[in-house]
Each structure stands twice: as structure tokens, then as C-alpha cells.
Design a protein around this nucleic acid. Structure first.
Lengths: 209, 209
DNA sequence: CCCGCTTTCATACGTTCGTTTGAATCAAAC
DNA sequence: GTTTGATTCAAACGAACGTATGAAAGCGGG
């Protein structure tokens, strides 16, 4: 099981191609070619392309969610009302951690998150995910205590902003169309920049409406 | 030419379907069906599906860019160094203005911007756009004066954040997976929330790295 | 009426897609 | 050595796709 394990190789190839090309853009043939597996292996090991996607997404999301959860636990063990900056760090940090752990300096996971958010294919939303909802609700509650006066709707609006900024990092379109003079952003710098940016954004006073 | 104008009807249908389903997900057949036109009409009026997309994107982007440019001119006519909040308002405001003008309360344009940012299809990046680069560079310069001490790279990182937050608004995935209790956000409120959120984010002190 | 030009239409072509199938291969148990 | 179950393989299926084609239809000016 150690070296080749067709199933894992397909998962790896699919993660990469789904991230790069989206659900519709990554054909089963391209995935099995990259995985050096047979075309029918996807059907055999996963049932269908949609179920393969779900397996890929779960494998990527789970450690991120676990880390977000653990860091929130650690924060709450220290004080029941952590400051906004630390909440942002705990929530957004794991997104960048996992991103940086990937083979290509994290671009792959970041792009995959972008796909999860933005891919129009219906199949991108079928990976259940009650655990994700739980974590999200816990952070919503914690942010709510740290930012009294913010309506639940505006709070949720701001949390979507966190995900958007984290996901949009390293997305190709931007880098392709970025001002020519700028060098690509190193992963660690992007992490700090994002935390700074988002902590300030989350801490903004309530709009009022 | 007034009522039916096949070309315009195709543009409208394509704008809607590209926004909803992405480039690959919106088939030429679905577009011409929605437009009540013949399948071959796309080839006749636009040449190819990719050129149809370019025409759609240009039609959506141009007024936004013009508005961003005009508002920056107005700002600079008043003072050579406008404050960050007004720059954010001038840059992000038109995104929401145009979004709100659409038929479905703006969701369509917002989603299309999201596609422009996130769609993995290569064709999504072929709509030239030197005018867009000009506007972007002008805002980069203005933000640079308003935020001395920020490196050009971090400045560009933050401007991408503006686009990300504006685009992610009303994207279906989020609303589908949003906490059940929350009602959907009204367009005007989202605009204020985003400006507040982004003005605070842009005004954050330099990270330093 | 008829002409030239634009536009619409039905149809077909070749490709690529996801999925299925049934035989071949492999590895361990007996 | 044979059997059994799991895995891999080449091949094929029908469906959907983007595009091209040539005839039909509309239509204002001679």
C-alpha cells in the first residue's frame, strides 16, 4: 500500500487538477492520466466524478477545520472573550498554514478553496460538512462577543470577507493581471498581510444600518 | 432594431448564464435557447463562444471602469491626496452601483465579477482590458500616497482584497451555506457594510515585512 | 418584380465527456 | 495448484459540446 496506492494517487491528481481547472475543467481522463491510473479506476474507487470531488474536498477541508477548532479552544481556555485580532488569527491562520504545507508552496490548496467558494458546478457543494457549520457558528458567536453592536447579518458578512480574502490569495487571474513591476508574494508575507488586513476590517465600528 | 435585436438578446442571455454557470457550464445551446435565437446565431454575430464571452465581459466592465475613473477624477480635483475612506468608496462603490442596477437586484453582475476573478477557463482572461489596468494603476498610486509606508506589494495585496470582498458578495455558495437564521442581505446594506469593512482594512498600519 | 445583402434556420460533423462492461491480472488462502 | 476476491485494463456507449455549412427567409432600393 505504501508507494503506489492507486486510490491516493487519484486523490492527489484530482486535488491538483480540480484546483487548477475547476470541476468541469478537470476531466476524469486528465486526472487518471496524471495519476498514471486507468480511466475506469475513478468509477471503481469512488463511484463517480462527483464523489471523487467530495472526497478531495473533505481531505483538504478537514485538517483546516480541525485546526480552526483547536485554536479557538485554546483561545477560549485562556479567556472567554478573546480579542478580535486573535480570533482572526485563529480563524484565518489555518487557511494559510495548510496552504503553505502543499507541494507548490500552497497555491494548490488556496485555489481549491477558491473553487469551493466560486465554482458554479453544483457538485462543488455536495460534500456535506456539518462539522464546518459547527466551527463557523462557534466563531460567529465568539466574534459576536468581541464585537458587540454588530448585527448577526453584518457579522456574517464580515466573516465571508475573511474567507474571500484568504481564498483570493494566489489566484492566478490576479497574478496574471497584476502590475508588471511587482514580484509574486511570498507565502509567509501574504499570511501576515492578510491577518493585519482582516483584523483591521473585522474591528471596524458597526455600520449601523 | 428596437425590440428583439437578436444580438442584444444573446448578450443578455449569455451574461446571465455565464454569471450563473461559468464559461464551461453555460453551453451555447442553453444561451441561444434562453435568448430565443438560433444556435448558429452565436457564430454569426460573435464568431465563437469565447468572443461572445469577451463581448459580455466588456459590456459589464466598461461602465464600472468609467465610474471608477470619474469618481477618482472628482476626488483628485478637490485635493491631490484624498483620504483612504474616500478612495475606497470611489473604487468599490461603482462595483455595487452597477450590481444594484441589474435585473435581479445585482446578483448577476456580482456573480459575473466573481467569475472573472475565479473562473479557471482560459477564455475568461482574454477580454484585453488596457483601460482596466490604467484605472487600477491610478488607484494604486492614489492609495500609495494616502498610505505611506506601505510597500507596493502589500498595497496591491490589499487592493485585491477589495475586489475579493466586492465579488464574493451574493455568491450563491455562501448564501446556500449561510447560517439558517440569517435573512439575505439587502443590496444597499451590503454596500455600506463593504465600504466600512474595506476602509478599515485598507487603513491598517503597514505590516512591516 | 427582382436584386443584393443581411440575417435566420435546420442539420450535420467531429470531438470530448462520464460512465459502463467484461475480460485480464494479481495476491493471498487453501 | 487451484480458487477466490480484489483490482486493473482496453474498449465501447450514448450524450453533450462548439463549430461549420448551405439553403431559406426577410427586406430596402433599382
Amino acid at each position: 500500500m505504501a508507494p503506489p496506492d492507486t486510490r491516493t494517487q487519484i486523490l492527489d491528481a484530482a486535488e491538483r487538477l480540480f484546483a487548477e481547472r475547476g470541476f468541469r475543467g478537470a476531466s476524469v481522463r486528465a486526472i487518471t492520466d496524471l495519476a498514471r491510473a486507468n480511466l475506469a479506476a475513478v468509477g471503481y474507487h469512488f463511484g463517480s466524478k462527483a464523489e471523487l470531488l467530495a472526497a478531495v474536498v473533505r481531505r483538504v477541508i478537514e485538517p483546516i477545520n480541525a485546526a480552526q477548532c483547536a485554536r479557538l479552544d485554546r483561545l477560549l481556555a485562556r479567556t472567554p472573550d478573546p480579542p478580535v485580532t486573535e480570533l482572526v488569527e485563529a480563524f484565518a491562520g489555518p487557511l494559510f498554514d495548510e496552504m503553505l504545507a502543499g507541494d507548490e508552496g500552497g497555491a494548490r490548496t488556496s485555489r481549491l478553496i477558491m473553487r469551493i467558494i466560486g465554482d458554479p458546478a453544483e457538485e462543488m457543494r455536495d460534500w456535506t460538512g456539518s462539522a464546518e457549520d459547527t466551527v463557523r457558528d462557534r466563531y460567529l458567536a465568539a466574534f459576536g462577543r468581541a464585537l458587540p453592536g454588530l448585527s448577526p447579518e453584518e457579522l456574517w458578512f464580515r466573516m465571508r470577507g475573511i474567507l474571500a480574502v484568504a481564498a483570493v490569495d494566489r489566484v492566478e487571474v490576479y497574478n496574471r493581471r497584476s502590475p508588471a513591476c511587482l514580484s509574486p508574494v511570498a507565502g509567509e508575507a501574504a499570511r501576515h498581510w492578510a491577518i493585519t488586513f482582516l483584523a483591521a476590517a473585522m474591528s471596524a465600528p458597526p455600520t449601523g444600518t
